[in-house]
Simulated scan of single mutants.
Amino acid sequence: MSPKDLIDIGVFSALYIVTVGVFNLLEFISPVMTLVTSAVSIVAAGVPFMLFLTRVRHAGMVTVLAVIVTGFMLLIGSPPVTLLVGVVAALVAEVLLWAGRYRSRYLAVLGYAVFSTWFAGLFLPMLYAREDFLSSPYMEAMDADYVARLDDLLSPAVLIAFDVSTLVFGLIGGALGLRLLDKHFRRAGLA
């Protein structure tokens, strides 16, 4: 990768993290808001991701972005499986982007949808290590009532529905990003 590629990855990783973070700050209101803000984050983050794809010319750039984003999530308390899910999702997205020679608009939207499934890693431990997740340092920062309501809300069925919905919200976010890219960013000379 060239220095320009690394700069692009750094800039767009920061934009992606800020976009996701702004909406996820509201998750502390209630457990329901945790799921709502995740969905809104996926849609909103489609804009910087699609703008990033205008600068991607070869394999590896999306995966490095995923490592940075999910690595940051680990630093703020997300479960380690988030990094694994993020890297796998990014590799699949890379295959889709490569199949479209990094220029297919439809595969770019689909690639973003697949990339967005890294959000499933945030709650995945609720399926296989529920007690450990609920007693993690991140959850200890919440009050006991919040943790109890989250435990009640995130049944296996809700978790599976959320995991599947990350693809749907990713498609919406990718389409929104593509629309804004065409409508505003190309006119402004940014894409």
Rank of each mutant, 00 (worst) to 15 (best):
L171P: 12
A157E: 13
V164K: 07
L134T: 03
S135Q: 13
L110A: 15
F115W: 14
G121N: 03
L150C: 01
M142K: 13
A44G: 07
G60N: 11
T166V: 10
F119V: 08
F115V: 05
V95P: 01
L65K: 13
Y146M: 07
L153I: 09
A144T: 11
W98D: 03
F169N: 10
A90Q: 12
R149W: 01
L74F: 12
P125H: 08
S135A: 12
V95S: 02
L65Y: 14
L122W: 15
Y106R: 12
L91R: 13
L74I: 15
F162L: 01
V47P: 06
W98T: 10
G121M: 02
G121R: 04
F52N: 08
V69Y: 13
M73A: 14
L96G: 02
E131D: 15
V47D: 02
L65Q: 15
V147K: 11
F162H: 08
I172T: 05
V67N: 08
I42Y: 00
Y146Q: 07
F123A: 03
M50D: 01
L97M: 12
F169G: 09
L83H: 03
V95G: 02
Y128V: 12
V56N: 02
P125Q: 06
V92L: 15
L107D: 01
L167A: 10
I172H: 03
I68Q: 06
M126T: 01
F52C: 09
V43T: 09
M73Q: 13
L153Q: 08
L150A: 15
V147D: 05
R105T: 15
A44Y: 09
A90Y: 13
F133H: 07
F162D: 00
Y102T: 02
L171Y: 09
A90P: 14
S104N: 15
A120D: 07
S78K: 11
D143G: 07
V64N: 05
Y138W: 13
L127E: 00
V64T: 15
V47F: 08
D145W: 01
L53D: 06
A99I: 08
G100K: 12
M50G: 02
L159T: 03
F72M: 11
L134G: 05
L159I: 14
L53Q: 14
V64M: 14
I172R: 03
G46T: 09
S136K: 04
F123G: 01
L74W: 13
G173E: 06
G46H: 04
V43N: 04
G60W: 12
G100N: 11
G100Y: 12
F49I: 08
E140G: 07
V114C: 06
V56K: 02
T166R: 07
L134W: 02
Y128E: 02
Y146T: 07
F169A: 05
E131Y: 02
F115I: 06
